[in-house]
Each structure stands twice: as C-alpha cells, then as structure tokens.
Design a binder for these strands. Structure first.
Lengths: 234, 234
DNA sequence: GCAGTCTTTACGAAATCTTTATAAAACCCT
DNA sequence: AGGGTTTTATAAAGATTTCGTAAAGACTGC
C-alpha cells in the first residue's frame, strides 16, 4: 500500500519539447506527473486521475487552454497555471479572469516555475482525509490514519513494516497470499526472493497478536505457497 | 456583520509614485486601499485593519518585503503579491518560497496586476465563515487569532513556529502526521528533507507542554513515520 | 550589543531492520 | 515407515537508521 504521497500535476501542452522538460523536472522534484497534448485529452485523463494542479498551454488543438480553464473552473477549485508564448496583456487578463491562478510566459525559468507551483499548491489543503482510514475484520481494528491496531480490544504497538504487513494481510483476509506478493508489497519490487524477511516478520507479528504464538490462529502458514490471514469470528 | 462590501488591500512601497498609481487604480476598482511606506508601518496598520490582500515592494527601509512576507505568513494566510524591480530568478524564488502568492516585476501593466489581484482574492473565502478562530481538543485550547495556547488551563508561551507546529498537529489530532507533511506545512517550499528541524521543535514543544517531557503523552512519536498528537481526555 | 527566535551540528540512546544459525516441521520418495 | 530434502519457526547477534537533546552559531529587530 502506502500510496506515493506525492502531489499530482497534469501538464497540458502540444509541444513535446515543453512537456518533456516539464515532466523531467517535475518528476525529479517528487511530483507525480501526467501529460496530455490537448484540452480534451486532459479532461479525459482527469476522469480517473485527479491532479492537485494543472499546468496548461494556451494554444492547442481540440480544446485550447482558455476553454480548458473555464471547463475546470466550472466544477473544481484545482490550481491552474497557464504557460504560454503569448505575452499580451489582453491574453493574460483573459486567462486569469477565466480562472487561472497564475500566468507564466515562455520562455520561462524552470526554477521560477517550480517556485510558483509550490506557491499554488500551498494554497490547497493536503488531501489527507480521503482514504477509508479503517479496516475492521474479526478481532482486528486497524486505524490506518492513526497507525493503531486493536486486537480483541487490546492495543498493540507495531513497527512500520509489521504494520504494513498486517494491513496487507488484512486487506486480503481469508485468501492465501503468496510470499512474492507480500514481499513485493512491503519491500517493493526487488527483493522478492528474501523469504527470510517474511518469516522473521510473520514471527514477530504472531508474537504480538496471537494469544498462543505456538499455534497460530490468525496468521496461518500455507506451506510452499504463502500465508493466510484468518481474522476470527466476524 | 459589519463588513464594507469592498475588499481591502494594503499597498506597501516606499516609492510614492507607485503607491499613488496603485491607490488610484485600485480605489477606482472598488477596493478599500491603504498605503504603508515600509514593512513596519504595514504591520502597525494591520493591527487594527485586516486587509484581504497585501501588495508589497521588496526593497524598503526598516523592514523589507521579504521579511514582511515572512512575518505575515507566520500568522496569516492572507494573499501576498510582491511587486519589485528585481527580476532575478533567485529573488523571485526567495519571495515565493517565503510565502508570496505572486510576483510581478516593475514596470508592470496595471491591467494585468488587477487581474492577478482578482485571481488571488478569488482563492480566499469571503471572510465570513472563514475558519473557527479556536481549536479545542482534550487538554488544549488554542486561540488562532490571539496566538495563545492553554494547556490544562495554564497558558504557555510558544514561538511562531512552535505555534504553527502545534496547530497543525492539533488539526490532525489522533492521526499520525508524516514528517513530510509537517515540514511542508510549516517550512513550506523545498526543505521537506530537514527532519532535524522537526526533532528540535518537537523537543521544544514537549518541554513546554508535557507534564513529563521524558515520557511524552501528547506528542507521541511513531518511529520511521511521523508524530501523532494525542490531546488527552476529551 | 541584547534578547528572542530560528538554524545547524553533534552524539549517545533507542528503535528498527537485516542477517545468520539452528532446530522443528512438512513434504517426497521408495 | 524411514531417510532425505526443502521449507518454516525462532532466537539472537549485528548493522543501520532514526530519535532526543543540548549547545553553538546566525539572523532579526530593538
């Protein structure tokens, strides 16, 4: 689990040169970046990916930046930064009054742009309390936000990895989870071979959660396959 | 609610030529305008006149625009627009990271400036149901406006950063707040890696708030993740 | 220069993660 | 059923990272 925490930025421009630069710079500053080449595609992307900020060019095929800005403002307060070669006062005013938060003319300084992005993002609240925040299965109550775990009404303290492991198991309660899945989800991509980690941590978890660690009742071993989480009476 | 329909703007600049133009233009666009010639005077004015937006120059006697920006940001979210002859990237970034919302270089287009003012003002809620000026959780009573904190009926003096930190924690009471969130919200801008700041300030806060600083009860650390604020019996 | 605050550094203490070793358990085969 | 092989459980030592704290340095306004 543990979604990347990073702020999401949608870049809308038909010049691939620009989008490439932006993507690279923004990514390297820990933003999640996606690119659209016109306004329509942008709206399409936003149907299932809500960015925290939009950077858009003005002149584009299909739907230009001005229209995109209006469309977005109709339903959302997301910060919009317009980036355009056009420097005329009239154009700027038009964009700003359409709902843009900032207007930067090309060519632009990347460093300045980043600062302006930060300034805009500062204005919107960090989207934290969105998630389901709680898992309740059987004898377990897991509060994701507070990082707390209750087993049979008793609180137990878990380390981050232990916590992640339990959460993953709890999310797949009743099903057998293969070693590889567990490893991948908690230690990430690479070390999917270090099954020893799992053993150690499963052991630790059992010690903390099970009434009798010697005969596990919650975390059941499925030899050669993985582990199954059995949360108890529902 | 005795509010003049008009939005209030404070202009801070030592060049009377500039302030005259701004005052005239802004007034004719139905803003309430006041002028200060330096940062100190600006703060003085704001003691009994809270503007909706501040337009400030950078270089001024007594207190420059950068310092003014920092001071304001320490206690308020009011939009700040910096207006300066200085066009260097470094200066802009500095101002924006200090908390400015926009940066316009002189000479400027009045029409564009007005558009940017509108854009900034659009972002803040009409000061009516803005935010509760008080946070009350557990043993804590925090008065945002007066910058005062009561713990178990006893007042404690906090520095601005300590105060910000506590407020942020209190607003997320019960949840684990990741280091990154805390850093981003209080130090803003880039420094989301300086976890040392946090340690120092959390230590300071504990010393001032906790009955026994050695075994914290309010500000609990969740190793490797962040801190959780536990305000006590509700 | 002084007071208050913020920044930076340093280091021992604490917590967590990784690695290793060994014994027990599960499986497979004849 | 018994021997051999692979997998699992557990403890414990070792390495690494993070935490708490104090204290020195820097900046600001007075």
């Amino acid at each position: 689990m543990t979604s990347t925490e990073h702020r999401k930025i949608l870049v809308v421009d038909d010049e691939t040169q620009i989008t490439r630069v932006l993507r690279t710079s923004l990514s390297s500053h820990a933003y999640d970046v996606r690119v659209a080449n016109d306004g329509e595609t942008a709206l399409e992307i936003m149907k299932d990916w809500t960015p925290d900020l939009v950077i858009t060019d003005l002149s584009m095929p299909n739907m230009d930046g001005l229209e995109l800005t209006r469309r977005l403002r109709a339903t959302s307060k997301i910060p919009i930064l317009v980036l355009s070669v056009r420097g005329e006062e009239r154009t700027k005013v038009q964009a700003l009054d359409a709902g843009a938060d900032d207007y930067v003319t090309k060519p632009f300084s990347m460093v300045e742009l980043l600062a302006r992005v930060r300034a805009s993002l500062r204005r919107i609240p960090i989207p934290d309390e969105a998630e389901p925040a709680k898992i309740e299965v059987g004898d377990f109550r897991i509060d994701l936000a507070a990082h707390k775990v209750l087993v049979r009404e008793k609180e137990v303290h878990l380390t981050p990895k232990e916590f992640d492991l339990l959460v993953y198991l709890a999310r797949h309660a009743g099903r057998v989870v293969p070693h590889r899945s567990l490893l991948a989800s908690i230690w990430g991509g690479q070390s999917t071979e270090q099954v020893e980690y799992l053993r150690v941590f499963v052991g630790q978890l059992r010690k903390k959660l099970e009434p009798e660690a010697s005969s596990p009742r919650y975390i059941v071993t499925e030899p050669w396959v993985g582990y199954r989480f059995d949360p108890g009476n529902d």
